[in-house]
Amino acid sequence: MRRTLLGLLFLPCLVLAATSEDPLKSSMWDFHRQRLLGTEPVLFDERVLLEVPPFAEDARQVPIRVDASALAGQVVRMVAWAELNPIPHIFTFHPHSPQVRPMLAIRIRVEQATALRAAVLTRDGVWHVGSARIEAAGGGCTAPSVVRSEPGWEQRLGQVHGARFPRGEVSRLRLRVDHPMDNGLTAGIPEFFLNQAELRDASGKALATLELFPAVAENPTIGLEVGGQEATRLWLRDNNGNEFEANL
């Protein structure tokens, strides 16, 4: 009975779009918050969409999409992580130009069923956090490399396949980069992964930068949105210093 009453007291929180209570009530929240977000105030905010499938059909290639379009024009930085992954951090995205929309889609590895978070820092210094849970049989971070089992992968390293898809006022840029994204968790194979990307305009000015971590799946598949039709160039670098470029 007492619990019912308490439940009723908490009910109003559920109807608010933004709250300071972790909707997933995860014990890992504080740990990752301190590590990745620092001390700025945090709001759990439904305006930050974090789309993930309800379960990981392939724990080595789990699609996620973060969309903070509702906060467009105010976004400074976007960070995503998987709480229970051995390497939780997925990416940090900095849209420098207002032309770049606060949307990023990427495929990741999931080691076990986990909470996922996307935190969006707005100009007023507040983190807006979207949350989701995914079920998984697991093993996505420690499974043997698929890329390395394919003959000729070294020759394909850094190849980019991509295209620009007009969607109303924006263009969606989709691309796949050939890279094993070794995370150091497979015996005898050290970390070898793309860790930096930059989207540049025709003059070479950075429109957005993206830091990647080896929670990102092999052969990273990435989706971005930019306003306008102007050609862009993508620059990528891995932790061994290899650089790759593509026109999008």
Binding site: P53, P54, F55, E57, D58, Q61, P63, G158, Q159, V160, H161, G162, A163, R174, L175, R176, T221, E243, F244, E245, A246, N247, L248
Partner: peptide, 23 residues
Amino acid sequence: TRTVTHLYPRYEREQLPRVDSPA
């Protein structure tokens, strides 16, 4: 959900031509 995971990458490939080029 399962089928998209299994098959969508093949459909994507048909839409994504090679775009990398040296600096």
